[in-house]
Structures are given as C-alpha cells and as structure tokens.
Design a protein around this nucleic acid. Structure first.
Length: 228
DNA sequence: GCGACAG
DNA sequence: ATCTTGTCGC
C-alpha cells in the first residue's frame, strides 16, 4: 500500500531521512500551478524561534498575486519538534507552518518558502516537503547558496546563473535588485524553475526578498513576542 | 579525520 | 535562526 504522507515527527535523523526518501517520489515539477502574472493568491510562510523556551511561531500571509495586497494572515505557536540539522529543516519548521496554513480561511494558489525545494541533499527540501504534504504548488527562495555552486549573475535585476549540484541545475541564483546579492530559487512542487523565478521577480518590486517572505517574517516574529 | 552546512 | 548600535544611503 502507498499510505498517506506522514505528519508525525521522526524520532531521529535516520528516520527523518527515510521519510524524505519515501515522500520525494510524490514531487511533480510541472506547470499545474498558477502562471506568473495570472490572477490569484500567493502565500508566504516563515518561522521564528525562542530556543531558550523551545517555542516556535509560524506565520502564513496570503497576498493578491497581482497587487501584492495582503488578503489574509494566520499564525500558529507550538513547541519546537526537531533540532536544526542541515538537510532536515522541514521537520523543524513544517509542523508549525502547516498549522498556520490550516488556520487560513482560504487556500492559497501557491506557497513561497524560506529555504529550498529540490535543491537539497536528497532532492526534497522544505518547499518540496510542504508541497507534497499539502498538495499545493510551492517553491523556495533562500538567502544562501547552501552547499551548491554558482557563478555570480550579472548586476542587473533579473540576471541569473544556474545553481549546480554537480552538473545538474537544481535552482538558480537570481538577482532581484540591481547590484544586490542574489537570492537562490528552486522549485518545490507543481512548478518549474522558470516559473518559480518569474514568480520571484513578480514578488520583488522593491526589495531583495519576496514580499511574501518579508511579510511572513515580520508576522511570525510578532507572534513569537506575543506568545511570551 | 576536518570542515561545510537552507533556517 | 539568534545575539546586537549606530550609520550610510535611497
């Protein structure tokens, strides 16, 4: 039997890796998600921690994909369920993020994550994991190149170079602001790299990071403070 | 064996 | 992620 995707927190790193290997075959990189520029909604999700108290706060902010106006916001607070281990970030962040997404009154057409999609040691980063569990189109925008190689893109906004895992392009270093350090985009689920990059440019009219992640970042920090 | 390592 | 002031610049 092909049982449903797991929600339970793995007991250790070995079990977590086994879950990733089992779930990754559900990843689909196609254009079944919204086309860049099309009307609809885009959600940004992010998480903030208070390691001292072992508390995590997540936020989901839904924007109008065309105007970038905020349509709805939701937060969730809970106990930290997993330590930070490079390659296993999803087990630390997703429980709270899924709660925040579940608290929304409407389902977004697309989700933007802080981190990576298929650019990952086992091809199953945060955005892919979230996409597979929710069934929603998702991609990741990371602030650092992780373990991947890339050449610096040209200085103008929109310039990009491949993010390489050996010889495979798993993502892209994308310049969202002229002369500013690029972001690192990778598809997660039900989207392509081209589409993810186009969406990222549409979400960055004024800053390096997408409006979705900027808003989710602010909101989850506020939720963490309020939880104190 | 020693680093490096999304958030 | 998080610990942290002022400061330069659009």
């Amino acid at each position: 039997m092909t049982g449903p995707p797991t929600h339970a927190t793995p007991a250790d790193a070995a079990q977590a890796e086994a879950v990733q290997l089992r779930l990754r075959r559900h990843v689909r990189l196609d254009d079944s998600g919204p086309a860049p520029g099309a009307p609809g909604t885009v959600a940004g999700v992010d998480v903030a921690y208070d390691d001292g108290r072992g508390v995590v706060a997540a936020a989901a902010v839904v924007l109008d994909a065309v105007t970038l106006d905020v349509v709805e916001e939701a937060t969730a607070v809970g106990p930290v369920a997993f330590p930070y281990v490079p390659g296993l970030l999803a087990f630390r962040e997703l429980p709270a993020v899924l709660d925040a997404l579940g608290a929304l009154h409407r389902t977004p057409d697309l989700v933007v994550c802080d981190g990576y999609g298929i650019a990952h040691p086992r091809g199953f980063g945060l955005a892919s994991h979230l996409g597979v569990l929710t069934g929603l189109p998702a991609f990741g925008v990371a602030k650092n190149p992780f373990t991947f190689r890339h050449a610096p893109p040209a200085a103008r906004r929109g310039a990009h170079t491949p993010l390489l895992d050996g010889d495979t392009e798993v993502g892209r270093a994308l310049r969202t602001r002229e002369g500013v350090k690029p972001v690192f985009v990778s598809p997660g689920h039900r989207t392509t790299l081209d589409s993810a990059c186009a969406h990222t440019l549409a979400l960055t009219p004024a800053h390096r990071l997408p409006e979705t992640t900027r808003r989710a970042d602010r909101l989850c920090r506020a939720a963490l403070r309020a939880a104190a």
